[in-house]
């Protein structure tokens, strides 16, 4: 076993002197390369993409469905890696992100960029060759949107960064649907719109209590630019749009009462959460006096909301 270990490592004790201090300084680990893929973000993207595959009319062989979802996951990971490469300067000054592999010095920026590009190009090619060109085109569009429109253009320039940039995270159900049908219809566009409108209240809840981090990094998130009061108002407005929009698949007869009831109750819960964010005890500048407890709760609920909402749609379609 130990011999095999030495072979796998590609060295033995006699080579010890060939290891430079530089090589040792780059203490990257498999876990760091996985961290570059932003696995937590990826899980939501994979889930919504899978729901797109499940609810689409038609049939896709399970192996092809797995391949399509894998391509969506890899593309999301690629976006995460490229985003970490581009944002390494601001990641280094934000408490939440300063231990990421690049600012912590465990992975070289160029390595992360190369990793991201290879995964992005690879996922689009595999999607195009094994599934269909429409799914591959939408996948390429989502990667381009996330990298060029959100990360490089909007994020550092406008407080509307995550409103417009949210479109990038809304593509997966459309890609999943296109993988099965080879087209993009009204229902995937509605699913896109649900994730798109869900993104601002989700991110701004996080931004309310990560306000200082964003301010230090110079990222013009809405709470930094417009203050807590305006952000709370915007969170409520987007949530008021989200709830009726989430019921659209039911109005249109695409889903049955399981989804309709789930969407109504989940929406009610969402409104209760954001109402608490809006009425949180604040100082005159809109800074929370409760350590942003309602915003933290709203952020957690928003993740649960999207998971259950999409799961209800899939259950409804499978049972109904």
């Amino acid at each position: 076993m130990s011999d095999l270990s030495s072979d796998m490592a590609g060295t033995d004790r006699g080579e010890q002197s060939s290891l430079s201090v530089h090589e040792l300084a780059m203490e990257d680990d498999v876990r760091d390369w996985i961290a570059l893929l932003k696995p937590r973000v990826m899980s939501l993207v994979v889930f919504t993409g899978l729901i797109g595959v499940i609810v689409a009319p038609g049939h896709l062989h399970p192996i092809l469905a797995f391949t399509a979802v894998l391509c969506i996951a890899v593309a999301a990971g690629a976006c995460g890696a490229i985003n970490m490469w581009y944002d390494r300067d601001i990641d280094a000054v934000m408490r939440r992100t300063r231990n990421r592999p690049i600012p912590a010095g465990r992975i070289e920026p160029g390595g992360a960029l190369g990793f991201g590009i290879v995964l992005a190009v690879g996922s689009v090619i595999v999607m195009g060759v094994t599934i269909n060109l429409v799914a591959a085109a939408v996948l390429a569009l989502s990667i381009g949107f996330y990298v060029f429109v959100y990360t490089m253009w909007l994020k550092r320039r406008t407080p509307q960064n995550i409103v417009i940039g949210g479109a990038a995270g809304a593509f997966p159900p459309v890609i999943g649907w296109a993988a099965v049908t080879g087209s993009v219809d009204l229902i995937p566009v509605i699913l896109f719109a649900i994730v798109f409108i869900w993104t601002p209240p989700h991110f701004w809840s996080l931004a309310l209590w990560s306000n200082e981090d964003y301010r230090r990094a110079g990222v013009p998130m809405l709470p930094v630019v417009a203050g807590g009061k305006e952000t709370r108002k915007q969170i409520v407005l987007y949530s008021l749009l989200l709830v009726p929009l989430s019921l659209t698949p039911w109005y249109l007869g695409f889903s049955g009462s399981i989804y309709g009831i789930a969407a109504a109750f989940l929406g009610l819960g969402f409104l209760v959460c954001v109402a608490r964010v809006f009425t949180d005890r604040q100082d005159p500048a809109g800074v929370s006096l409760t350590n942003d407890a309602p915003a933290r709760a709203a952020f957690k609920y928003s993740i649960l909301y999207l998971f259950i909402l999409f799961a209800a749609l899939a259950v409804d379609r499978l049972i109904g």
Partner: peptide
């Protein structure tokens, strides 16, 4: 010449490289 790594540093490096190789 750059300073040589100690045995323990080299061991950590080898272990990490082995992990990456297995992952690939």
């Amino acid at each position: 010449f750059p300073p040589r790594p100690s045995d323990s540093e080299a061991e950590v490096f080898r272990r990490r490289r082995r992990g990456r190789n297995i992952a690939v």
